[in-house]
Design a protein around this nucleic acid. Structure first.
Length: 877
RNA sequence: GGGUGCUUAGCUCAGUUGGUUAGAGCGCCUCGCUUACACCGAGGAGGUCGCAGGUUCGACCCCUGCAGCACCCACCA
C-alpha cells in the first residue's frame, strides 16, 4: 500500500542508489543493439550547477531514458571542464582572500596544486548534483578535460593541424585582458556601448607650427604611440599636407601624413591618427604603410618607458594627464560627448586592450568549409532550424582563432623551443635534442591552450581518440548534441570543425539548442541581481520530478524560458495527482495480477484508444525535440482523460464492484503504461509507482529498462472515441446548465434527451444511461423522441441532440434567456457565413472535397440549432 | 552598420503544408470538504491574433510597408 503522499526528499536518493546498484546506466561497447549517444556538455569546475545545467540534464535524460527503454544501447557520457580562465580566476580570488597571496607568490607548480584541489571538490559537487537531478549517466566513463587521454588528443590534434599548416604562430594584434593577463579570442570579448568623449586635438605641421591638422580620438592617451596621421587621398582640404610630416603633440616626434582610403570622409575630423600598437584597424593600416609599431603598455595596461613622461600611469590616469597637458599647450580644440563600443573581457569585465604580441592561431576559415557543408547538406541538423542561418553567418565570416593563453591552468602548448637557436619543435612529447643545432636544452612554450580547444575535441577525446578504441567505433558519431544557443560558436561550431577534421566524421547528427533560462520576469539570472533560482533548492523543496516536468513543459522552441516557483509548484501538484490516482487503482485493483481486458466495454475501448493517441503524440513530439508538446500531452491525458473521466466513469458503486469481481485490468494496465510513458520526465516517482503496479514486466528489475510504450493497433477504437466524446459533451452540458442557473452541484435535475438526427443516436447513447445519470447528477434520464412544451421545460440544442429539463428543477430563467439570445445571434451569423461560402462558385470549384463536406455538415447542424433556438425564443417571448 | 527572432486571453506560451466555431497551463470569478487527491472536483468570464495594405472563395498562417521589443555579429577613429 502506498503512503498518502510522495515525499521526494525521502525517496529520491534511495531510488537513485537502487539504479546504481543494478548498474542500469552503463553502456556496452560490445553490444549488438543500435546505439544512442549523448555527450553531456561538461560543466565548468568553477562551482555549482545552475538552472541551465538542470535543463540540460533534464532534456538529455529524457532523450536517453526513452531510447534506453526502447532497447537502444545508450551512452550518456558525463564530464567536467577545466575552464581555464574562469577556474584560474576563482582560485586566484580565493587565494587572495584566504592567504593574501597571488599566484606568483606560490609559483606555477604550487598554484596548480591548489587548482587541482579545487577541481576535485568542485567535480564532486557537480557529480552529486547531476545525480540529484536524476541523470542516468554512465558514471564509469566520467571524464575531465585534463584527463590523460584528453590531453593526448589535444596534443595529437595540435600536431596534426600544425603539420598541415592550419596552426601557426604569428605576431599580431590581439585582444588582451590586463586583469587576466592573457590574450583572448574575438568571441571572448563583449562590446558594450559606453558613454565616452571625442577629443579634437591639434597636430602641428613640422616646421610650420602655425599650420595644423585636427584629429579626433576617443583614446587620447594612445597618441603617445602614434606613428602616422592618415587622410583620404581625395580629400582636398588636406592637399597641403600630402607628403609632409606632423608633430605628435606632447612628445614632439615627427610622423608622416599618409594617404589611405580607409579614412571615412564623412566622419569625425576626417584626419585619423594611426596607432598600430593599440588599435586593430590602425594595425592593418600600419602594416600596409610599413609604419613602426609602438607598444605603449605592459601586461597590466600600465604605460611603459615608450610613454616617456607618462611611464607608470595606468590607461585611465594617463588619459587625464595627457588631456591636461594638451590643454596647457592649447592643443585641445574641443571635446564632445560620444557613445562608442568598448570591448570588455567576457570573464572579468575589464576593458580589454588591443596589443601586439606573438600568439598561436588556428586557420579556422579552412576548417569551416567542411563544417558549413555538413550543415548545408543536412548531414547535421540544427533544431530549431532558424539557428542554421546564424551558424552560417558566423562560419562564413570566421576569422583566425587565437588559441594561446598566458595562463597556468590548462593544456600546455605542445611546443618546445631550443635554448640555443630558438627552433620550435612541435610534438606529442618533449624532444630531447634540437633537430637543428643538436642542443639538448629545450624549454616548453609557457602558454596554455584556449579551453574551447580541448572542449572542441570532447566528443572524440572522451571516446578514446586518437586511439581507435572500441568506444569510438561503437559510439561515434554521437546522436544528439543538446546545449544552449549561447555556445553555438564557442563550442558547437568548433566540435564540428575539429571532429570532422580529426575523426573524419561529423561528431553528431543533430544539434538541439534549448532556450535560455530566465527568472520569472524574463530577466537574465545573475548573482549581482540576486534573482538566481537554484535548481537544487527547488528540487529539495518541491521535488526533482516536479522541477524536471516543469522544465520540459517550458522547453518551447523559443529563445527564453522563465522559471518561477509557482510553475514548479503546479507540476508538484501533478506528481501528487498521479500518486493519488495510483493509490486509488491499487486500493481497488491491487490484486489484479493478470491481464484481463474487457474490450467489449466501450469505456475501456475509449481509454485504450485515447492512450494510443498519447503514445503516438509523445513519441512523435520527442522525435522532434518538442518536449513541451510531449509533456502537455501526458499532463492532459493523465489528469483530464484518465483521472477526471475514466476513473470517474468506473467509480460508480456497481461498475467498480463488477470490475473488481471480474478482475478486469484496464484501469491497472492503462495506468501502468502511462507511468512508463512518463518515466523519462519524472524518473523518481514513476519508478516508485511502477514497482507497486500489480501488472508489469516482472522480468525487469526497474522501469528504467522496461519497454517504452508504442502504439498498439489492436486497441484503436474510433467509434468508441466518438461515442464517449458525445457522452462527455452531454454530461458537460448538464453541468454547465446547472452552473448557469447557479444551482449547487448537489442539486439533482431531470433530463430528457431527444435526437435531431434519428433514433439511432439515442440507441447508441442508451448503454451509457446510468453513467450519464451519475456523472450529471440526474434524478431522471430518458432517451425519447419527444418534445416538451416550453411552459414546463427548458430546451437546449447541442448539435444533433436536443435536451429538455423541467423548469421546476431549475431556478431563475432570465440569465438562460439572454444567453440563448446571444447564442442565436452567433449561430445565425455562422450559418449565414456557411451558406455564403457554399454558394460561392470559386469555393465550389477550388476547395478540397473534405473541406466542402465539412462546411455542408456544419451548415446542417447550425440550421437545426438555429431553428430550435428560434422556436424556443419565440415560445418564450 | 549587418543579421536573426518575436508581437495571439491578465501572465507564460502552443497553433505542424492557408480550410468548419483560435487552444493549453497559471491567474481570476462562482459553486462544492461526492471516502484517490482541497496539492481536489464542477462550472464560468476573458482574444477585432501589434498596425496598415495586398494575394485568395477563404489569412493568426503567404506578400509589402510601418511600429515596438529582444538577441547575435561588427573595434567609423
Amino acid at each position: 500500500m502506498l503512503d498518502t503522499q510522495f515525499i521526494p526528499k525521502d525517496s529520491e536518493s534511495s531510488i537513485y542508489e537502487f539504479w546504481l546498484k543494478h548498474d542500469l546506466f552503463k553502456a556496452d561497447s560490445n553490444s549488438k543493439a543500435p546505439t544512442y549517444t549523448i555527450v553531456f556538455p561538461p560543466p565548468n569546475v568553477t562551482g555549482v550547477l545552475h538552472m541551465g545545467h538542470a535543463l540540460t540534464c533534464t532534456l538529455e535524460d529524457i532523450l536517453i531514458r526513452r531510447k534506453r527503454m526502447q532497447g537502444f544501447n545508450t551512452l550518456w557520457l558525463p564530464g567536467t571542464d577545466h575552464a581555464g580562465i574562469a577556474t584560474q580566476m576563482v582560485v586566484e580570488r580565493n587565494l587572495m582572500k584566504e592567504e593574501k597571496k597571488s599566484r606568483h607568490d606560490l609559483g606555477r607548480e604550487k598554484f596548480l596544486g591548489k587548482v587541482w584541489e579545487w577541481k576535485e571538490k568542485s567535480q564532486e559537487t557537480i557529480v552529486s548534483q547531476m545525480k540529484k537531478m536524476g541523470g542516468s549517466f554512465d558514471w564509469s566513463r566520467l571524464a575531465f578535460t585534463l584527463d590523460e587521454n584528453v590531453s593526448l588528443a589535444v596534443r595529437e590534434c595540435f600536431l596534426r593541424l600544425y603539420n598541415e599548416g592550419l596552426i601557426y604562430r604569428d605576431t599580431a594584434i590581439i585582444q588582451w585582458c590586463p586583469r587576466c593577463h592573457t590574450a583572448l579570442s574575438d568571441l571572448e570579448v563583449k562590446f558594450k556601448e559606453t558613454p565616452g568623449k571625442f577629443w579634437h586635438i591639434k597636430y602641428r605641421l613640422k616646421g610650420e607650427p602655425s599650420k595644423y591638422l585636427v584629429v579626433a580620438t576617443t583614446r587620447p592617451e594612445t597618441l603617445l604611440g602614434d606613428t602616422a596621421v592618415a587622410v583620404h587621398p581625395e580629400d582636398d582640404r588636406f592637399r597641403d599636407f600630402h607628403g609632409k610630416e606632423v608633430m605628435v603633440p606632447l612628445v614632439g616626434r615627427a610622423i608622416p601624413v599618409i594617404l589611405d582610403t580607409y579614412v571615412d570622409m564623412q566622419f569625425g575630423t576626417v584626419a585619423l591618427k594611426i596607432t598600430p600598437g593599440h588599435d586593430p584597424n590602425d594595425y592593418i593600416v600600419g602594416k600596409k604603410h610599413n609604419l613602426p609599431i609602438i607598444n605603449l603598455m605592459d601586461e597590466n595596461a600600465v604605460l611603459n618607458k615608450e610613454a616617456g613622461a607618462y611611464q607608470g600611469l595606468d590607461r585611465q590616469k594617463a588619459r587625464l594627464k595627457v588631456l591636461e597637458d594638451l590643454a596647457k599647450q592649447e592643443l585641445l580644440v574641443k571635446e564632445e560627448n560620444h557613445n562608442h563600443n568598448v570591448g570588455h573581457c567576457d570573464r572579468c569585465g575589464t576593458v580589454v586592450e588591443p596589443k601586439v604580441s606573438a600568439q598561436w592561431f588556428v586557420k579556422a576559415e579552412e576548417l569551416a568549409k567542411d563544417a558549413i557543408r555538413a550543415v548545408e547538406s543536412k548531414e547535421i541538423r540544427i533544431v530549431p532550424e532558424e539557428w542554421e542561418k546564424t551558424y552560417f553567418e558566423w562560419m562564413r565570416n570566421i576569422r583566425p582563432w587565437c588559441i594561446s593563453r598566458q595562463l597556468w591552468w590548462g593544456h600546455r602548448i605542445p611546443v618546445w623551443y631550443c635554448q640555443q637557436c630558438e627552433e620550435a619543435h612541435v610534438g606529442l612529447e618533449a624532444p630531447t635534442v634540437c633537430k637543428k643545432c643538436g642542443e639538448t636544452k629545450l624549454r616548453q612554450d609557457e602558454d596554455v591552450l584556449d579551453t574551447w580547444f580541448s572542449s572542441g575535441l570532447w566528443p572524440i577525446s572522451t571516446l578514446g581518440w586518437p586511439k581507435n578504441s572500441q568506444d569510438l567505433k561503437a559510439f561515434y558519431p554521437t546522436s544528439v548534441l543538446e546545449t544552449g544557443f549561447d555556445i553555438l560558436f564557442f563550442w558547437v561550431a568548433r566540435m564540428i570543425m575539429l571532429g570532422m577534421k580529426m575523426a573524419g566524421k561529423i561528431p553528431f547528427h543533430t544539434v538541439y539548442l534549448h532556450p535560455m533560462v530566465r527568472d520569472e520576469h524574463g530577466q537574465k539570472m545573475s548573482k549581482t541581481k540576486g534573482n538566481v533560482v537554484d535548481p537544487l533548492e527547488i528540487s529539495d523543496r518541491l521535488g526533482t520530478d516536479a522541477l524536471r516536468f516543469f522544465l520540459s513543459w517550458n522547453a518551447f522552441h523559443g529563445r527564453d524560458m522563465r522559471v518561477s516557483d509557482e510553475g514548479v509548484e503546479s507540476c508538484k501538484f501533478f506528481v501528487n495527482k498521479i500518486w493519488n490516482a495510483s493509490r486509488f487503482v491499487l486500493m481497488h485493483f491491487g490484486d489484479v495480477k493478470q491481464s484481463n481486458v474487457d474490450l467489449s466495454n466501450e469505456v475501456n475501448q475509449w481509454i485504450w484508444s485515447r492512450l494510443n493517441h498519447i503514445k503516438e503524440e509523445v513519441n512523435r513530439s520527442l522525435d522532434q525535440y518538442r518536449f513541451f508538446e510531449a509533456a502537455q500531452a501526458l499532463y492532459h491525458f493523465i489528469w483530464s482523460e484518465y483521472c477526471d473521466w475514466f476513473i470517474e466513469f468506473i467509480k460508480s458503486k456497481d461498475e467498480l464492484e463488477a470490475r473488481k469481481a471480474a478482475k478486469e485490468s484496464t484501469a491497472v494496465e492503462v495506468l501502468e503504461e502511462a507511468i512508463r510513458l512518463l518515466h523519462p520526465f519524472m524518473p523518481f516517482v514513476t519508478e516508485k509507482l511502477w514497482q507497486e503496479m500489480p501488472i508489469r514486466e516482472q522480468s525487469k528489475v526497474s522501469i528504467c529498462i522496461a519497454s517504452y510504450p508504442a502504439v498498439d493497433n489492436s486497441k484503436k477504437f474510433p467509434v468508441a472515441e466518438e461515442r464517449l466524446a458525445r457522452v462527455i459533451r452531454l454530461i458537460e452540458q448538464v453541468r454547465t446548465t446547472r452552473g448557469l442557473h447557479q444551482l449547487s452541484p448537489a442539486t439533482e435535475i431531470s433530463l430528457s434527451v431527444s435526437s435531431l438526427a434519428g433514433d439511432s443516436l439515442l440507441f447508441e447513447l442508451s448503454p451509457f444511461k446510468e453513467l450519464i445519470k451519475k456523472m450529471g447528477k440526474l434524478k431522471e434520464l430518458d432517451f425519447k423522441t419527444q418534445e416538451f412544451p416550453k411552459e414546463t421545460h427548458l430546451s437546449i440544442v447541442m448539435r444533433d441532440l436536443k435536451l429538455f429539463i423541467p423548469k421546476s428543477d431549475l431556478g431563475d430563467l432570465t440569465k438562460e434567456l439572454s444567453r440563448k439570445r446571444k447564442e442565436l445571434q452567433e449561430k445565425t451569423e455562422a450559418l449565414r457565413r456557411a451558406d455564403e461560402k457554399l454558394r460561392n462558385e470559386k469555393f465550389i470549384n477550388s476547395a478540397p472535397q473534405a473541406v466542402k463536406e465539412g462546411v455542408v455538415k456544419q451548415k446542417m447542424d447550425l440550421k437545426r440549432e438555429v431553428e430550435a433556438l428560434e422556436q424556443y425564443l419565440a415560445d418564450l417571448g
